[in-house]
């Protein structure tokens, strides 16, 4: 009798555990969506609305069309974003990358920028990723203060090389992407 009892308790516990975990996972994901995703969507929607209805889009298009639809132009964007003094300023929350990404997306959608440039563009707008966060990120990895002192400039200088390089790699990887429907 007690064996059956134990089995029932065991099954009940593990099922309860799994259901509880799934429920908690759902709660977490809805929480993330409400706190982080929807506010950004609202903000981005406003910007897109502004671009599409006013003339702002036209001069952005002119500015971006020249630079974002050629390899040298994309390289220029990536070099500017990777300059060690500028990259930490562009980093926080990836807000700049998200806005520029959205602007480029609008222009790609209108056909002003060729679709295959979407891949190199994703790298061109983002060589500054995490540059604002280096000391915190290293502290999360329990790095010594001396490592942080060396690590911050090391990462920033590395980006000057790897930022443009990533655009070149992405450019060659984009061959055959959305070229024929």
């Amino acid at each position: 009798m007690s064996a059956i009892n134990n089995l029932i308790v065991k099954v009940g516990r593990s099922v309860g555990g799994v259901v509880g975990t799934l429920y908690q996972a759902g709660r977490d994901s809805v929480d993330t969506v409400i706190r982080n995703v929807i506010p950004f969507m609202a903000f981005i929607s406003f910007i897109i609305g502004l671009i599409l209805t006013t003339g702002v889009g036209d001069w952005i298009a002119k500015g971006l069309k020249g630079s974002a639809s050629t390899l040298p132009g994309l390289l220029l964007i990536s070099v500017v974003c990777a300059i060690p003094l500028i990259s930490p300023l562009l980093g926080p929350g990836a807000v700049i990358a998200q806005i520029v990404g959205t602007l480029l997306g609008v222009e790609i959608g209108k056909g002003n920028i060729p679709a295959q440039y979407s891949l190199p563009a994703l790298f061109a707008i983002n060589p500054q990723v995490g540059c604002d966060f280096i000391p915190v990120g290293l502290a999360l990895g329990e790095a010594e203060p001396e490592t942080v002192e060396v690590g911050v400039p090391a990462v920033l200088f590395s980006r000057l090389v790897t930022g443009p390089l990533s655009v070149v790699i992405a450019y060659f990887a984009s061959f055959g992407l959305y070229t024929s429907k």
Binding site: G93, A97, Q98, L104, G105, E107, A115, S118, A121
Partner: peptide, 18 residues
């Protein structure tokens, strides 16, 4: 998820092209 639009921003344009 908080930085989704780095990708989704550009992806939306691709989607619009079908």
């Amino acid at each position: 998820p908080g930085e989704l639009f780095v990708y989704v921003g550009i992806a939306t344009g691709i989607q619009q092209l079908g």
